[in-house]
């Protein structure tokens, strides 16, 4: 389910079936790593779009959290914990974060949800066809991850 009115209507109706929330994490920076943060955001946006298409019926793709790269790790983690608590209290059994920002790797243990870290690929120089096939490959790898997690808990 995407975060739009049409899908959310269906979500409210079929809520019992949708037990997975996916939160894309988008780093935002205006300093020397600005370009990098843009390409990370771009890549994760494309990737989460594809992912949503595959698993439309079981996951809710949240609009994503943009955060300033200048914020401290503790602050970011505690903010994300608040999201997590809310999602869990609202009945989501599985939570996934999807990001290209490797800083999250260091705080992975503190999070309840699974952290999916995908290194961002410089997509800006690729033509559409190549871009799509690369994204498809990446998404295919993710599919197993989700299916395995679901099977373990069912």
């Amino acid at each position: 389910m995407k975060w739009n009115s049409q899908d959310i209507q269906l979500f409210i109706k079929e809520r019992e079936y949708i037990d997975t929330a996916v939160v894309p994490l988008y780093p935002v920076s205006f300093r020397e790593d600005m370009k990098q943060s843009v390409s990370m955001t771009e890549f994760i946006q494309l990737l989460s779009g594809q992912l949503e298409k595959q698993f439309k019926g079981r996951l809710l793709m949240l609009p994503g959290i943009s955060y300033l790269k200048t914020l401290s790790e503790d602050k970011l983690t505690s903010d994300l914990k608040e999201w997590e608590d809310e999602l869990i209290s609202q009945g989501f059994k599985h939570i996934f974060y999807i990001t290209s920002d490797s800083d999250w790797k260091t705080v992975e243990d503190k999070l309840t949800g699974g952290l999916i870290w995908m290194p961002s690929i410089p997509l800006e120089n690729m033509d559409d066809q190549y871009k799509n096939s690369i994204l498809d490959d990446q998404v295919k790898q993710l599919l197993n991850l989700f299916v395995r997690k679901w099977q373990n808990n069912d």
Binding site: Y17, G57, R58, W150
Partner: peptide, 22 residues
Amino acid sequence: LGCVVDWNTDKSNPEHFYCPCH
């Protein structure tokens, strides 16, 4: 609910289209 089904991926039900979501 609109997931993408796959052919022959569920081991207990071969020769079927299988939806991984539910």
